[in-house]
């Protein structure tokens, strides 16, 4: 038990701290804190789903923001059409993301390495431009939501605290699910295909099917994050799917520590807090942020999760 605690203190501590946010938020500017933390949790959820692909599968998808966008647009379009039910939003978001993942994944998984990075980028861009073409839903400018998703006809998510807790619940559920997947038969094959695809084929596995399945799972989780994101910002626009957003998600995963899952959460916290602090400090905060990013890549190998748990490995 003690050993397990020592190994697991980081994810435990992370979730404990996140759970305390609604309790501590009233001590400061409550709505600001809750909105910032909701954003962090939602981005962490998206980054977590990406870690399944990059960390476990070795598949550097440069179009993950598209899946986030699918979720956001499911809320935006349905709300604009008068469907405000959160269950419907989620169902449509997940179904659309699954369709997108299967259609694009079937092509993308035939390539590897740099070509995979580029083709996922291309599919992301396709969806981005598709969103700008939705003139009925704001085109380039996007649409403002009439309100948050409802649950069984009641607007419980209107409370910032409830929305935050819903997001945190989704993050915890996704984290536990992905941990199980990582330790399952499926996860083992996925990691094997990352490390040595030829060896995997030589013992009888076709990496393609496993990678496609991982892509599917990852896209569906990211779509859930998109639904939450739309609710948090109250606004949906193509900018959610810009390739820079995909780049940021990759960075968050790498910053946190590839393949550790909780690293993605840590990365999201660090990334968004840094962005927030620096942007308060100066409008030209990116002049510091860019070099920080470079330094993180050059020197923080293993990511934040690696740095924090270095001494604790059994």
């Amino acid at each position: 038990m003690a050993r397990r605690l020592r190994r697991e203190w980081l994810p435990l501590g992370l979730f404990l701290a996140l759970a305390l946010v609604p309790v501590l938020a009233p001590l400061g500017p409550q709505s600001f804190i809750l909105s910032l933390m909701t954003r962090i949790v939602v981005v962490a959820l998206a980054a977590l789903s990406l870690d399944l692909l990059i960390g476990k599968g070795g598949l550097v998808s440069f179009g993950h923001a598209a899946c986030l966008g699918i979720g956001a647009y499911a809320v935006g379009i349905l709300s604009a059409e008068g469907v405000t039910d959160g269950g419907a939003h989620l169902a449509v978001a997940i179904a659309a993301a699954a369709f997108f993942a299967l259609a694009t994944g079937a092509v993308a998984m035939r390539t590897d390495g740099v070509h995979f990075i580029m083709i996922t980028l291309a599919f992301g861009q396709m969806l981005y431009f598709l969103a700008t073409a939705l003139s009925a839903y704001g085109g380039d400018d996007g649409i403002t939501l009439p309100g948050r998703s409802t649950v069984l006809g009641r607007d419980v998510l209107a409370s910032d605290t409830v929305l935050y807790l819903a997001a945190l619940g989704a993050l915890l559920a996704a984290y536990l699910l992905l941990r199980r997947i990582a330790a399952s038969r499926f996860g083992r094959v996925l990691e094997g295909a990352r490390d040595n695809p030829v060896r995997m084929e030589a013992i009888g596995f076709r990496p393609f099917r496993f990678r496609l399945a991982a892509y599917l799972i990852s896209a569906m989780i990211a779509a859930v994050a998109g639904v939450l994101l739309a609710n948090q910002t109250g606004f949906v626009s193509p900018a959610t799917m810009a390739w820079q957003r995909s780049g940021e998600l990759i960075f968050i995963v790498v910053l946190g520590g590839l393949g550790s899952l909780h690293g993605a959460i840590l990365g999201a916290i660090a990334f968004i807090l840094a962005e927030e602090l620096l942007s308060h400090w100066s409008e030209h905060w990116r002049i510091v942020f860019g070099p920080l990013l470079i330094l993180a890549v050059l020197f923080a190998r293993g990511g934040l999760a690696g740095l924090l748990t270095k001494g604790a490995r059994p």
Partner: peptide
């Protein structure tokens, strides 16, 4: 120069940082 031996993933990220930096520098 410090990235040639690194993975494509690292290269993508570090050069992404260069974009952010130079874009902002030009803006300043």
């Amino acid at each position: 120069r410090h990235l040639y031996e690194r993975s494509h993933l690292d290269q993508v990220l570090a050069t992404f940082g260069v974009i952010i930096f130079l874009g902002e520098a030009v803006r300043m």
